[in-house]
């Protein structure tokens, strides 16, 4: 199941943001470019809020090659939902 915050309209998730935390310098270019405000810096760590529409603008503008988007569809089974990709 795709979790969304209670005050926000549930949106169809089309991508998983794979963040390489070793490469990421938290410059916040991706946070400002994301059209659906999917990325956020919390506690010195870049996290994903599971609203990705797979536009890949963050992947294109990331100067540190830290972001990779995996496109998914309805049938994709997301393994390790809470621990794998949202930054713990």
């Amino acid at each position: 199941m795709i979790k969304t915050a209670p005050d926000e309209k549930p949106r169809k998730r089309k991508g998983i943001v794979h963040i390489n935390h070793e490469y990421c310098k938290r410059c916040s270019i991706c946070v400002n470019f994301c059209p659906v405000k999917n990325l956020e810096i919390r506690g010195q760590k870049l996290i994903e809020l599971e609203r990705c529409t797979a536009c890949k603008i963050c992947q294109r503008y990331c100067p540190d090659i830290a972001i990779e988007i995996e496109e998914i569809d309805d049938k994709t089974v997301i393994s390790g939902e809470s621990s794998h990709h949202n930054g713990g």
Binding site: E22, C24, P63, D64, I65
Partner: peptide
């Protein structure tokens, strides 16, 4: 990697 440049460098 990571590159040696500052955060936000182009």
């Amino acid at each position: 990697l990571p590159t040696p440049w500052c955060p936000g460098c182009g």
